[in-house]
Structures are given as C-alpha cells and as structure tokens.
C-alpha cells in the first residue's frame, strides 16, 4: 500500500487546513492572531519576490555553514583517529563549543566580525551548531572498523594512509551520511537563530522577514516565511536521504 503512505498524510493535511479555514471564519479571530490559510497564501503570493529572495539568502547561508561543518567535522575526526593526543586535547573544547548556547555567543561573534558583516557572523554561528554531530559521528565511524580487516591490513603491510583511505573512510560513510541529515537541519536552525540575534537590514534572510513582519503585526506574512523555512528544511533532508540511499543501498543494512 505505497499510495497510502502518501495519501494518508496528504488527506490529513487537507482536512486540517479546511477545519482551520472554517474555524477562523466562524469565530472571527483577528487576522493578526491567527490568519486563515487562504490569507496566508495570499500574503505569500503578494510578497513572493521579497520572500523568495530572502529564502535564497537563507538557503545560501545554510548551505555554506553546512558544507563547512561537514568539511570541518570530517577533518577533525580524521585528526582524532590519527592521534589520541590531539583528540584528548581538542575534544573537551569541541564539547564546550557544543553545549554553550549559540544565542549567548552571538553578540560576541558579532563584535568580532563587525556588525556590517552580519552574514559572516550568521554562518559562523550556524557552523558551531552544525559541526558537532559530524565530528562525533565521524569519529565513531572511523573507529567502527572490523578488527579482522585491520589485522589483514597489518598482515599485508598496509600503511596508515591506506588504512584511512581504503578502510576507515568507507566504513565511516554510513555514519557520516546520517550525521549530515542531522547537521543540515541544525545548520538551518543555526542560521535562523543567529539571524534573530545578529540580523539587521544587512542580513535580509527569512528570519529577519519574520521579525520584521512580527513587528508590523503582518501575521500572514510570518506564516508564509515560516512555510518557506520548513520547505528548505524538508528539501535539504530529502536530498540527503536520497544521497544516502544512492550511496549505501547496495551494501549497508540501514539503506535496505
């Protein structure tokens, strides 16, 4: 029943939207408290150029932070695997970075990069949020290597480089891909939160649109921006889930 997997949530969505529309019309709730779906759609269409360009901006920042998080996480994890000393020295700081609320660091980062470079601050803050899952999962993955295969590599005189390239990196791929799904979502969260804090006229992302519309009590537009944010999140997740299936389908249990 594959059609049920699509039709059931879709049908529920339509029902909820209808009930929402009817309820708003019957009760006469003010539009700035809860706009009807039709009003949200209209607001979205009216300000489409503005919202879409903001969405593009937010997406660009999210992707930049995400790719930097993946690159940084993988690189540091490889360093960790290469040297227990580096891991022992660095890991606590990675944890400190992870557990410190990003909102609290934001003003500081903003001072360092300058208020004029709000987008740099946003990317940096989102990176901090997004890189830890990659680091910790990748470190785990690089270690989760069949001891028999390691013995085999030693038996034939394989170098550390060969062990990394031919054994550890491929073995860590499922771990990396699952971390990337988490990290992509966190990048988006990071960008939005950072923009709430650091945003100004120079960082015209979706988060800023939400604040702006909120200040003007343009609730329908807030909803429209929110929908776009959700769409970006779903899109990122879908692309990564596809990539995961594509790369792992033939050999890893998780994708079968």
């Amino acid at each position: 029943m594959t059609w049920l997997r699509w039709l059931a949530p879709l049908g529920l969505g339509v029902l909820v939207l209808l009930a929402w529309e009817v309820a708003v019309r019957l009760t006469g709730i003010p539009v700035f408290v809860l706009p009807a779906p039709s009003r949200i759609l209209m607001a979205g269409l009216e300000s489409a150029p503005l919202l879409l360009s903001s969405a593009g901006y937010t997406l660009r920042l999210t992707l930049t932070a995400f790719l930097a998080a993946v690159a940084g996480g993988v690189l540091i994890a490889v360093l960790f695997t290469g040297s227990r000393l580096i891991e022992a020295a660095l890991y606590p700081y990675a944890v400190v970075l992870q557990v410190t609320p990003v909102v609290a660091i934001a003003p500081l980062v903003l001072i360092w990069v300058g208020v004029d470079n709000a987008s740099t601050a946003v990317v940096l803050l989102a990176w901090i949020v997004a890189f830890f899952p990659v680091l910790s999962n990748m470190t785990l993955g690089l270690r989760a290597v069949d001891p028999g295969l390691r013995a085999l590599f030693r038996l034939y005189g394989g170098s550390r480089w060969q062990e990394l390239w031919r054994l550890r990196l491929p073995a860590a791929l499922p771990y990396l891909l699952s971390a990337m799904k988490v990290s992509a979502g966190l990048s988006l969260v990071g960008v939005v939160v950072a923009e709430f804090v650091a945003g100004s006229g120079t960082s015209p992302g979706l988060a800023w649109r939400i604040i702006e519309a909120g200040n003007r009590l343009q609730t329908p537009r807030m909803f429209a921006a929110l929908l776009l944010l959700a769409a970006i999140g779903i899109g990122l997740f879908a692309v990564l889930a596809w990539l995961e299936r594509r790369l792992l389908a033939r050999w890893h249990d998780s994708a079968r």
Partner: peptide, 21 residues
C-alpha cells in the same frame, strides 16, 4: 568470518592484499 569489505566488489576484495602491497 569472511571479513570482507561490504562496500567493495568481489574483485576489489580479492585484490586488496595486492593493492596494499
């Protein structure tokens, strides 16, 4: 256990010792 690399083909698994050498 066979101790094979699950991501690599039969030929690549068999080739491993020669590649390491």
């Amino acid at each position: 256990d066979p101790t094979l690399m699950p991501w690599a083909s039969v030929a690549e698994n068999i080739a491993l010792p020669l590649r390491l050498m």
